[in-house]
Each structure stands twice: as C-alpha cells, then as structure tokens.
Amino acid sequence: MDKTQAAPFRQLLLTQQSALLAQLAAQRGGVIGRAEAAADHFGQPEDPRAQLATERELEFALDERETAHLAAVDTALHRIEAGTYGECTDCGTDITAARLYGTPEAPRCVHCQEKVELQQHHAV
C-alpha cells in the first residue's frame, strides 16, 4: 500500500497515538514519574492494604497495556513510512482494509494473528 492509500490509516494512528500519550500522561500524574503518581494516588492511610495492592497492580497492568498499544501504533506509523503498511509481517499477504480500519496498528492478517494467539494460548 502506498502512502496515499495509507493516509486515512495514518490519521487514525496519529489520533490513537495522541489519545494514548494523553492517557498515559494523566495516569502517570502529568510531569511527575509513575512511582510518585502511584505514591500520591495510593498513599491514603484510610485505605485497606489489600485494596491498595489490588488497585496498584491494576493501574500498572493498564499502564503496560497502553504502553504496548502505543508501541504498536508507533511501529505501524514506521511501516507506513517504509511503504510496508498493510502487508502481514508474517506471511506478506495484504491485510484487508476492514481489519485495518478496525485495528489500524495490526501487523498481521487475521489468519496469522489467529495462529499467534493460538500459540500463546498453548504456551500458557
């Protein structure tokens, strides 16, 4: 897919990137670090210890998920610049436009993605 064809997907990716960066910044307390934000957020003496631990783990898990999503978006933007966007990174076939509109950061066609997910499921 050339850059002209990829332009609508590029815009979707840039929108996702901006939203993710804003969300991560808000979760991390803006300009302060994640550790400081967590200490401020979870340091209330009236909160039960188990609740604090659960909330902290949930927040870090969400942060990791959003960081991974941001990395996938950045990688997709690099594929647009390289002229390989829309090609499955595993088998080289074209990824359908419907899949890219639904998940513009998708690196694989549906078939290859299903294989990866099946392998991950069996590894667990």
Rank of each mutant, 00 (worst) to 15 (best):
D2R: 12
K3L: 08
Q11M: 05
L12W: 03
A97V: 15
Y85I: 06
L58H: 07
R79S: 01
C112N: 02
E55N: 13
Q113F: 05
R65T: 13
A6G: 02
F9M: 02
H41G: 04
Y101E: 08
Q5N: 08
G92I: 04
R79I: 05
R34N: 06
A98R: 15
A6R: 01
H121P: 00
A72T: 12
C91T: 10
A6N: 04
A123P: 00
Q119T: 14
A97W: 12
T84G: 01
L12G: 00
H78K: 13
I32Q: 11
A35V: 11
F60R: 15
H111N: 06
A6I: 04
I80A: 00
A35G: 08
L24T: 05
P45Y: 07
E81W: 05
A35Y: 06
T4G: 04
V73S: 00
T96K: 05
A35H: 12
A68W: 07
V31H: 14
E105Y: 13
A35L: 10
Q119H: 12
F9G: 00
A68T: 14
G43F: 12
Y85P: 00
Q113P: 01
H69Y: 14
H41F: 12
A22V: 09
D47I: 11
A39P: 02
H111W: 09
R49V: 10
Q44C: 09
G83C: 05
Q27H: 15
T96G: 09
A53R: 07
H111A: 14
P8Q: 03
A19L: 09
Q51D: 02
D90W: 07
R65E: 06
A26D: 11
E105S: 13
T89L: 13
H41E: 10
L100G: 00
G33Y: 07
A98L: 15
A106Q: 02
Q27L: 12
A97Q: 15
T75A: 14
T103R: 12
F42P: 01
R49F: 15
R34D: 03
T84H: 04
D94L: 14
T89Y: 09
I32Y: 05
L52C: 05
R28F: 07
E64C: 14
Q27C: 06
F9N: 00
M1V: 15
D90N: 11
A71W: 14
E114H: 09
V31N: 12
G102W: 11
A106M: 04
L12Q: 04
E55Y: 04
M1I: 07
A26M: 10
H122F: 09
Q5P: 00
T15F: 03
Q11S: 04
I80T: 00
A50T: 08
P104A: 04
V110W: 03
A106C: 10
A98V: 14
Y85G: 00
